[in-house]
């Protein structure tokens, strides 16, 4: 999956380096994910409200993130002072993407016209892992419009073996 905006990625890269040095990448990841869930659009609007003195906003943010690692809290304060707190969710996403990429994990979205049995799901994931040589984190979806077959999106690659896609190809070939 493509990464988010480049500013967010710079912060995420810096955080990842710090996290790697202290060997606590997963702690950081969980912390960032928690913060992403906590800091919604309303919270961001409140944190960017210039009518409220910066100290009060900083204290509020500190209180909310008191359990998180020091570096994450430092980033939060930095973002607040630079009025870039709005990219916080993107930093969390970029961090997750960077970690996944480093560990060779790829997201796969597998759509089928009917619900797959758990055994079938495992089979699909295993096959994908074997052909792509990467670890797969899969999400499954049901789309009856596919008619048959499966549509697998592996990162940016799309392998569409659904009956619908084949019919569309045939239509194009017959029309030309």
């Amino acid at each position: 999956m493509a990464l988010a905006g480049s500013a967010a990625r710079r912060y995420a890269e810096a955080l990842l380096e710090i996290a790697t040095e202290s060997g606590s990448v997963n702690v950081y990841r969980d912390a960032l994910d928690r913060l992403r869930a906590a800091i919604g659009p309303d919270a961001i609007r409140a944190l960017r409200d210039r009518h409220v003195p910066i100290e009060r906003r900083r204290n509020a943010l500190d209180a909310a993130a008191t359990d998180e690692p020091k570096a994450v809290r430092a980033v939060l304060v930095m973002l607040l002072e630079r009025d870039r707190i709005a990219i916080m969710p993107e930093i969390a996403r970029a961090f997750g993407d960077l970690v996944d990429r480093r560990e060779g994990i790829v997201h796969a979205k597998i759509s089928t016209p009917v619900e797959l049995e758990p055994a079938q799901r495992d089979d699909v994931v295993q096959r994908l892992e074997r052909t792509s040589g990467k670890r797969i984190r899969a999400t499954f979806a049901v789309d009856p419009a596919l008619l048959g077959g499966a549509r697998i999106q592996l990162g940016d690659r799309l392998i569409d073996t659904s009956v619908r896609a084949q019919l569309e190809t045939m239509q194009r070939q017959l029309a030309s």
């Binding site: 493509a2 690659r157 017959l174």
Partner: peptide, 19 residues
């Protein structure tokens, strides 16, 4: 003609990049 084309049709799925 259409029949011949359908018989020759191969539903091969080349992986493509999507965005």
């Amino acid at each position: 003609i259409i029949r011949a084309q359908i018989e020759r049709f191969e539903g091969r799925a080349e992986p493509v990049d999507v965005g």
